[in-house]
Simulated scan of single mutants.
Amino acid sequence: MAIHNLGSINIDHFYSVPHLPAPGETLAATAYGIGLGGKGANQSTAAAKAGARTVHIGAVGPEGAWTVERLNGAGVDTTHVSVLETPTGHAIINVDATGENAIVLFPGANLALPFPKVVSALSEAAPGDTLLLQNETAHQEKAARHGRDLGLRVVYSAAPFDPTAVRAVLPFTTLLILNAVEAEQLCAALDTTIEALDVPEILITRGAQGAEWRHRDGNRAFAPALSVKAQDTTGAGDTFAGYFCAGLDLGQKPQAALAWAAKAAALKVTRRGTADAIPSAAEVAAFGT
């Protein structure tokens, strides 16, 4: 089994600020850092650190070679990461004293990967493998359709939320991952309820209220959130998604995968950074013991 992730790769620029800037406000940062990020890279890192065989499909610019090395270092197969002339995607991340964040994103090379590269990468996938998608790359709909036709489990982490993108990808999705706000936005955009969505499985993360998994056959699973002192919430949802997908890929039942993912996300928020701060399976196992 394996997880094939058509995902973004970003260079994250972190600014520690006393509070998130208000409109028109100029604010002096108290610290600065740089690291690997992007929802795709975060989720690939989490899945690989959890122990799942993880293949990343994506693109960077000429200055992004070190990001690919970081992914390799986390155990991610980067054979299908292309180097393009378009600059690597990057994010400007403001983090306040409570760990809350505000992010400005430049997509860059993430939107420039030719679709034939995706098809070539997925030629190595086997039925029953997972295709993981987010909304920070091009070709989600075509990739989801192609993945379904190959017999893959298509997992769609529908963030950053875009109702048009969700409408297009949903018919080919096996598992839809949303946070609570995105779930409300989707229901409003489609004029429906979560229960009425035509998708086999849904995972909704609710922050401090935990996370729930639903199957349209009526099965349910729930995991409470762990109480921790947050240092940086950036990448917590990606850590959860990556660990949950890894759990399913490794044969865990949804309830066990939920609890494992919740523990991994809780440990992540106690650390500053994004992909570089995602814990390993051994660290998650030792956390809270």
Rank of each mutant, 00 (worst) to 15 (best):
N42E: 03
N10V: 01
A286I: 15
E136A: 04
A265F: 00
L27Y: 07
A277N: 08
T174Q: 12
V104Y: 10
Q140G: 13
Q255A: 12
L258I: 03
V83Y: 12
N10P: 01
L27K: 14
S8E: 10
I177D: 00
A121T: 07
T79V: 11
R148K: 14
E25M: 08
N94W: 10
L133R: 05
A196W: 06
F240D: 05
K229S: 14
V95W: 10
A2Q: 06
S82V: 11
A138N: 10
P254Y: 06
F172T: 04
E100P: 05
A29P: 07
S280T: 12
A211L: 09
C245G: 00
A143G: 08
L170V: 02
L122K: 07
D96C: 14
P127F: 04
T26C: 11
L132Q: 01
A28M: 14
P21W: 11
A125E: 08
V166G: 05
M1T: 07
R214L: 09
A189L: 01
M1E: 11
E124P: 14
F222H: 12
Y32V: 09
S120L: 14
I57W: 01
A28D: 13
A257T: 02
L186S: 00
H215R: 13
I9E: 01
V228W: 06
K49R: 15
E184P: 11
F244Q: 09
H90I: 05
W213A: 05
V55L: 06
D198Y: 04
L6V: 13
N101K: 04
I194Y: 11
A112L: 04
A236C: 11
E195H: 07
N5P: 13
P87R: 12
G235C: 09
I194E: 13
Q209N: 15
E136M: 08
A91H: 01
H56F: 06
N135L: 10
T45F: 02
A183G: 02
L84K: 15
K49M: 08
A109I: 03
P224Y: 09
L6P: 07
F161V: 05
G237T: 10
A183Y: 02
I278R: 03
V284L: 08
S280H: 10
K253H: 15
